[in-house]
Design a protein around this nucleic acid. Structure first.
Length: 291
DNA sequence: AGCTCTTCCTGAAAGC
DNA sequence: TGCTTTCAGGAAGAGC
């Protein structure tokens, strides 16, 4: 599943070839995951790509509009979320088309940018310059940039399970199920712990663990569990270094205890029961009795 | 506030 | 063997 490291890897690949290119043509297959497919087909041809960036799990293709008034016209952004199974790849027009490829962007150098998405949980939309700041600000902090004080402020005050907060894109943008589990394992924190109950030391450790895991995953070009590939169609390698994710029943790399899987925040959560001690079980407290 | 459930979608895997 | 059911999950929305 594309999370921050996978999206970052895709963006780095696209950034090497797309800036400077002009989009010549857009062809669409199924469009139910595109906010405004008509606008997409009308506004992109002629637009020049100025950059490719990432915020959270979103890819942003930064565009300068076409036409004589281009100097004055507002820039805009092709914003893409890969969902669960989205792939953004560059190909030659004659290359075989993967099943479930629904968007083709023809470029002026003869190449083609394609969007493939088996489950169509992804999303594509155009955002005008005037709206991009708000779009970005509705998301939380970048995990690789957030400072410890802000991290503690965002987590340490919340009475929610730490796993749920890690997955909440309004708090941190970019962490998904894989890297939440791997980060919690590294920090030796149980996914169901209430964030507010964590010590300052634990929050500090988690803050560091998240950054270290994400950076390591970027170094290994992401995790390919099922469908993820980068912009050249290559799989990542970080799945070989997972410590807990999808390792249920296998021995912990630290203590040999069997890795367990439970549902927390509605998600499969993998952890080592010895390295990541469970929170104090919810108290069988007696109710205040009325006479 | 925070939790659970539901919806979207497909393919792999499990069940019969 | 082959059909049916279940499950996985990012995000948003409903309801409690």
């Amino acid at each position: 599943m594309p999370e921050l490291p996978e999206v970052e890897t895709v963006v780095r690949g696209l950034r090497a070839s797309l800036p400077g290119r002009t989009i010549c043509d857009v062809r669409l297959g199924k469009t139910d995951f595109i906010d405004d497919p008509i606008a997409l087909a009308e506004r992109l041809p002629g637009a020049r790509i100025s950059d490719v960036t990432r915020f959270g799990k979103f890819v942003s293709v930064d565009l300068v509009p076409r036409g004589p008034a281009a100097q004055l016209a507002e820039r805009f952004y092709l914003v893409i979320h890969l969902g669960m199974t989205g792939q953004l790849t560059t190909s030659r027009p004659g290359d075989p088309v993967a099943p479930h490829t629904h968007v083709f962007f023809a470029l002026d150098d003869g190449n083609e940018l394609r969007y493939t998405d088996i489950r169509r949980f992804g999303r594509i939309l155009l955002v005008p310059e005037s709206g991009i700041a708000l779009f970005r600000d509705r998301l939380g902090a970048e995990p690789l940039e957030i400072r410890l004080e802000e991290f503690c402020a965002r987590f340490g005050t919340r009475h929610a399970r730490v796993k749920a907060l890690l997955l909440d894109q309004g708090i941190l943008r970019g962490v998904g199920n894989i890297y939440a589990d791997e980060s919690l394992f590294r920090a030796r924190i149980h996914p169901a712990r209430i964030a507010r109950d964590l010590t300052k030391t634990q929050l500090t450790t988690l803050h560091r663990a998240v950054r270290e895991i994400l950076k390591a995953a970027i170094r290994f070009r992401g995790s390919s569990i099922s469908d993820y590939v980068d912009s050249a169609g290559n799989r990542g390698e970080f799945q070989q270094r997972h410590r807990v994710y999808q390792r249920e029943g296998k021995p912990c790399f630290r203590c040999r205890e069997k890795i367990r899987r439970v549902i927390v925040a509605g998600r499969s959560s993998h952890f080592c029961p010895r390295c990541q001690p469970a929170p104090r079980s919810r108290t069988p407290r007696r109710k205040v009795k009325k006479p």
